[in-house]
């Protein structure tokens, strides 16, 4: 039962990826499709950011993550290197969790 579920999930997950890659490569020179496809990563990434910051088990919560992500945003705004954003957002979240 578990093995079949893992098989179906793996197959399904891969089909999404490969079908997307094949269809996306056939878009030709259609500028409107191109314009729409270019908007998918920013739209989906910001959805993901919102979820990973405010969602917990299907509900909205405000917790230490918000401060960590806010710290990351400030560091990103200051054009600091990527690792500083990752490290300091984790650090701030961990410290607030420890003492909060």
């Amino acid at each position: 039962m578990i093995w079949s579920a893992i098989f179906i999930l793996s197959l399904g997950a891969y089909l999404f990826k490969i079908v997307g890659a094949i269809i996306g490569a056939r878009r030709g020179k259609n500028k409107q499709i191109e314009a729409f496809l270019l908007l998918l990563p920013p739209a989906l990434l910001s959805s993901l950011i919102a979820l990973q910051t405010f969602e917990l088990n299907g509900t909205l919560v405000l917790d230490a993550r918000v401060f960590g992500v806010a710290t990351g945003c400030i560091i990103a705004y200051c054009r600091r290197p990527f690792y500083e954003i990752v490290v300091f957002s984790a650090l701030v979240t961990a410290v607030i969790r420890q003492f909060g």
């Binding site: 990434l45 993901l48 990973q52 230490a64 960590g68 990351g72 990103a76 990752v86 957002s89």
Partner: peptide, 21 residues
């Protein structure tokens, strides 16, 4: 979560989102 890593991902994605905007 105790290491704050759950916040590191959205923060990292913010950095990667900025060039899109």
């Amino acid at each position: 979560d105790a290491w704050g890593l759950d916040a590191a991902f959205p923060a990292g994605f913010v950095a990667l989102l900025i060039p899109h905007l």
